[in-house]
Design a binder for these strands. Structure first.
Lengths: 352, 352
DNA sequence: GGCTTGTGAGAAAGCGGTTTCAGATGGATG
DNA sequence: CATCCATCTGAAACCGCTTTCTCACAAGCC
């Protein structure tokens, strides 16, 4: 009897409420938003009418009138990637604390639709958080040049005047290289992530810088899933590497599976290192040495930065969060340093 | 030079475009939406102006004028649960094919905010997909009675006149029980999911029905994460069970980890069965016997049903999708069937 | 007691689009 | 050549809400 659903959706408007309460629409608005003082008696009548009619303000009308949506949008490449939920939760928490809701969209790793999705987000959110490692620089520039609050997540683009928050992928890979070098490894392989990914190029940049540690690196094309790692791992044998670095933990786990199938013991015969430190306690077959991203902090900082951008308009400098090395069971000193001697004249580290 | 970002957001309106192109706003609208024929020359001028000014229609204004948002909303309890991405991808695909975008919200497993989130979604989406196993029936009824297109995902509520699409959890657990009975198991334990979860109660209902197979079941409180499974697994020993069923795969994997730590071999001494068949190829330590949900189909059907509800208004009968048994490495015949003889008086399995 | 001030409520003007409605223009027709 | 009709375009109304503006009324002041 209460709400006799008229047509599609809740078609009861603020004027209906006003009529029912015997006041004007303006008064209803004032009561609901608390923007001005109104006679308590009237307010009570309004509230009654609201519950009576089951009134809920129309978000579009509110957004239009107020000039803001009360919403921030987040675009992530792939929700199946266990990396994102952690940052999304933090983003949601911050947004909620500022009275905003967050809407998430997924590009399904397809850069061609990413641009459209971001534009959609811009048209219906006060600000957007963009996690796109793949989008081309020009596209990115077009988007950031739009004058709409936007913060880059997990990507720093030097030339671009866009605020950004990212984990220090370069530093993370340097930590890994340092760890491996210290263990005595000299030849390492890298199972590369997506071709055009910035996150991947940062890792590679670090691997190249790590030549200073005396490491020589072979890069093998791979991808970002455990299946990719499983498939690409077979190619590691031919490189003479004693340690394997990867784009992320999933790849590393896939690779470990394959190596074991091939009879290569990890870490005795091959050290394997992950990246990201996704939570797989009690689930994964291997306790990976990896580097961890403070995902909560990442999301929090990005959301706060976006909030500042929306309300005050100032954009801080790009933030880079340090990663931490997590040494676990998948790395060990190389067992056969002698392999180096057959290199064609490489140095012979008298390890031992 | 192109867009001199004036103030906050893209403040260029349809009238600005009209002015720039020397036509009225109406004409711009007609050109952009193709709702009526306009002089090609004018159309060209309009398109020029649009790109020139970087015009993007304001979503709120469009929504208000058109009376629809072009968006469907999905509420999931927890994005970190690997179950959902699969269905979300399918939902997105269907939505996109109907020209709608999808916005995802997460309740973080907190039923108390779920209600608000759904209302938010209703106020800004044409329809909503609700995956809430925990929400109370009364809350649900209030929401579905609102006359707003809504489809329940992974939950069937008998008395409620709400369209719904769900996997057949009851049937899934029956498959598991049949499998275990066939292997010769008689006593099984169940690591229960969240208390008030419908998905969990369906599993339990099946376990009770499985008494007909000659199974006796002990239910142990647990949860939905691998950590829960790890912690709760210790209690299995005291039940005399030769097989362990679980709320989901993560719990099962956590339990296996613990059992192995306790020196119990899986599946030789204890069979363990998962639920859901989340994709963990090459990642998990155990290849679980489990039941699989057609997550893609689930999302697809739910989205199609919602679409039908929005456009035509008719709501079909609740759909239940069958689950499939996946027999892998974590189940085997019980090693000590003799335990059965001591049914009432705690026998001593001569596990020598 | 008349006039200024303060207070609270209603009327009305947007917000930025879409869509109806009316009008202007051009071609076809008698 | 005048009339009619079909097309296309612009003006205006409207979507539902917020917010300014205006006004009525009551209280406070000289």
């Amino acid at each position: 009897m209460r709400n006799l659903r008229q047509g599609r959706g809740s078609r009861v408007t603020i004027s209906d409420v006003g009529a029912a309460a015997g006041v004007s629409a303006s008064t209803v608005s004032r009561v609901l938003n608390g923007t001005a003082k109104v006679d308590p008696a009237l307010a009570a009548r309004v509230h009654d009418a609201v519950t009576q009619l089951g009134y809920r303000p129309n978000a579009a009308a509110q957004g239009l009138a107020r000039g803001e949506w009360g919403t921030i949008g987040v675009l992530v490449p792939d929700l199946a990637n266990p990396y994102f939920p952690g940052v999304l939760k933090a983003v949601s928490a911050v947004a909620r604390s500022h009275g905003r809701r967050v809407m998430v969209m997924e590009s399904d790793d397809d850069p061609s639709i990413e641009h459209d999705l971001v534009e959609d987000l811009m048209r219906s959110c006060d600000g957007v958080l963009l996690a796109s490692s793949r989008m081309e620089r020009a596209d990115l520039a077009a988007l950031t040049g739009r004058g709409h609050p936007l913060v880059l997540l997990n990507r720093i683009v030097p030339g671009l005047a866009a605020p950004a928050v990212s984990a220090d992928f370069f530093g993370g890979m340097m930590l890994i290289c340092g760890h491996l070098a210290q263990l005595g490894h000299r030849r390492v392989a890298y199972l590369s992530g997506p071709e055009v990914s910035w996150a991947n190029s940062e890792r590679i940049r670090a691997l190249e810088a790590a030549k200073a540690f005396g490491l020589s690196v072979t890069i093998l094309p791979c991808g970002s899933t455990s299946q990719c790692g499983y498939e690409a791992a077979a190619g590691v044998a031919g490189t003479g590497a004693t340690a394997l670095t990867t784009y992320n933990d999933l790849v590393a786990l896939g690779a470990v599976t394959r190596m074991r199938e091939l009879g290569v013991r990890v870490p005795e015969e091959l050290s394997v290192v992950g990246f990201d430190d996704i939570a797989l306690d009690h689930v994964a077959h291997t306790s990976l040495t990896t580097v961890s991203v403070p995902r909560g902090q990442l999301g929090r900082q990005a959301a706060e930065m976006l909030e500042a951008l929306m309300t005050e308009g100032h954009d801080g400098a790009p933030v880079t969060l340090p990663m931490e090395l997590q040494v676990r069971d998948s790395t060990a000193p190389p067992r056969v340093p002698a392999v180096l001697t057959s290199e064609g004249g490489g140095g012979k580290p008298s390890s031992g």
